[in-house]
């Protein structure tokens, strides 16, 4: 019974995993390009973002077709509606990685100051994205909850980096432009953390049917 629908849902899951993998790749590239000052890596980001956009459109069509053909209820409905929401967050991760890539040339190949914890922040954000995709793949609520909890860590990094950059400007006003560019980069990482949190929230919804759980934090950072 309902073999075809199960196959369609399975394909939807596979495509989401592919899109998630692209997101992991794009943000890792952005972080590596930043830290290693590698223009060749940065150049790979835009094409990858386009691939993510294409994937979003493809999965969106699949979801709309499934809603139309199968009129899903219960777990099926949650899975498909969660997929529709998740791809929006995934697509934004791609955009923000590209935004980071666009700033990189303005950093003029400078080595990042040691005391500014942007490497650590990038690492923590990449982990959030990887884990949120992993939570989806395994349909694992504890992994999803851990992602939501770790959003605080990324937010804290952002606050610390902001303070460090304010000090940098205070010590050397000519560093103003450089500091602001770095702040933008940090902000994009922080937003990527929010999107990973949203993805984890939708994984929770898909599995448990609880919609509000773990989401107030992201609402807070939206303000």
């Amino acid at each position: 019974m309902r073999t075809r629908f199960d196959e369609q849902l399975n394909t939807l899951g596979q495509e989401l995993i592919k899109m998630g993998a692209l997101c992991e790749e794009v943000i890792s590239l952005a972080a590596s390009a930043l830290i290693q000052k590698d223009d060749a890596l940065a150049a790979k980001i835009a094409p990858l973002d386009h691939e993510i956009d294409e994937k979003e459109r493809q999965i969106e069509s699949m979801c709309l077709r499934l809603l139309l053909q199968q009129q899903p209820v219960a777990r099926d409905l949650r899975q498909i509606s969660a997929a529709l929401k998740m791809i929006t967050d995934m697509e934004r991760i791609g955009d923000q990685a590209e935004d980071i890539a666009e700033i990189l040339p303005f950093l003029n190949g400078r080595t990042l100051p040691e005391h500014i914890e942007i490497r650590e922040m990038a690492k923590a954000t990449i982990k959030m994205v990887t884990d949120s995709v992993d939570a989806y793949v395994k349909q694992d609520t504890s992994v999803a909850e851990a992602v939501i909890a770790s959003d605080d860590i990324v937010d804290d990094y952002f606050t610390e980096i902001k303070s460090s950059l304010i000090s940098l400007i205070a010590q050397n006003p000519t560093e103003g432009e450089y500091a602001l560019d770095l702040l933008m980069v940090a902000k994009y990482f922080e937003r990527i953390g929010d999107h990973a949190t949203n993805i984890a929230g939708w994984v929770l919804f898909s599995v448990t049917g609880e919609k509000t759980y773990g989401r107030p934090q992201t609402d807070e950072t939206e303000k």
């Binding site: 019974m1 309902r2 629908f5 899903p72 209820v73 219960a74 777990r75 099926d76």
Partner: peptide
């Protein structure tokens, strides 16, 4: 219930 309404 889930199995019935989802057509399983």
């Amino acid at each position: 219930t889930e199995d019935y309404i989802t057509g399983r």
